[in-house]
Design a protein around this nucleic acid. Sequence first.
DNA 1: GCCTGTGAATCCATTCACAGCT
DNA 2: AGCTGTGAATGGATTCACAGGC
Lengths: 214, 214
Amino acid sequence: MIKETKIPDATIRRISQYSRPLERLLGQGVRVVSSEKLADLCKVNPAQVRKDLSYFGEFGVRGIGYDVRELLREIERILVSDKEWNLCIVGLGNLGMALIGHENFKKRGYRFVAAFDNDPRKIGLHLPTGHVIQPITKIPDLIQDLDIEIGVITTPPLAAQATADLLMESGIKAILNFAPIQVRQPECCLVENVDFTVSLDNLAYHLGKDDSSL
Amino acid sequence: MIKETKIPDATIRRISQYSRPLERLLGQGVRVVSSEKLADLCKVNPAQVRKDLSYFGEFGVRGIGYDVRELLREIERILVSDKEWNLCIVGLGNLGMALIGHENFKKRGYRFVAAFDNDPRKIGLHLPTGHVIQPITKIPDLIQDLDIEIGVITTPPLAAQATADLLMESGIKAILNFAPIQVRQPECCLVENVDFTVSLDNLAYHLGKDDSSL
DNA sequence: GCCTGTGAATCCATTCACAGCT
DNA sequence: AGCTGTGAATGGATTCACAGGC
């Protein structure tokens, strides 16, 4: 059970995406879904859906399809979103403020339990979410005391690396980084970078390629 | 007319990322960089850097490396970020507000020229960025009049598909979607989805896998 | 010696096609 | 008959390894 063959990263990401239309279907009272239907909703190949799921077990019924509720539970188990994860956020500019209150996080079991900034004018501030902004000097203690597992970085780029270092030294297990720099410290800590200018550049590239009006 | 590209999507995304350390190097007065150095800064393989760039030409000098300034200019040309792109944003909740003022956009030539919402309490509001929030009914006209090429969707999930449809009917060429749904698109419009809960789920999966404390 | 550019090789992910179950 | 689960085939992307030029 622990010994699992190497599962593609892309598979994990797709499985995360499968859960969203499944939730909608569940809300609509739909009981059963086929790989073809689910694939259509997620814009992927039906065989891809079946293969992705087959890495983790046999959740379907031949001739019938997948039970929506059961499949959702399996996905929750796979992605460990049946557990509440404790997060902190560092950098409460506009983006940080938007994220800490964003419902997508809590809807999926991600809970911000601390907020940090180094701006003296912000420290002590009460946020509408109920959080009080803490100085970054408290990061080490609070990560330990509140059992914070994942850190979200929304600082300016120049501060991001130092922030990541501090989080890692304090024993954080994973980082979600919104600053447009590549942070990584081998082994001890996982890092995911979210950089929407990369997505924009990708759009611009394809637009520029197809478009003659340049 | 027909897009014929053998250039991997991943290559475009990496090239976008190369530009960030290059800008830092340029600011530090570094004139020349090797593929090995650049690869190290971006956490990729040196051969990958060379191959990515070779799709677009021969920018380096054997035995020496790449001229930092020249390489940056080439990348700008490739990604068409030497042009200013006109964007609009739809949905001015916290996330939308944060994005419209975010410096990463304008730093890379992406300019928000309109902001839309359907909440009567928000329409007419003057934002600190100087934008005035417009009703979504004005989307068709303004996309045409202001030559808006890319739309950013930051509405709630339930409104996202209708928003995308309206943008596409109005002639938008590309969409950057932050809502956690897979937007249906006709062949004429490019869509990039940015979904940070997928990134979080991915972190949670890997944490749960490595960690015995479950 | 140093570093790029690139065919060849390797590795990985996706899709096909059908066996197997209901 | 219908749909899953999966080995095999295909198709891409990454890395190697070295030829070519400074």
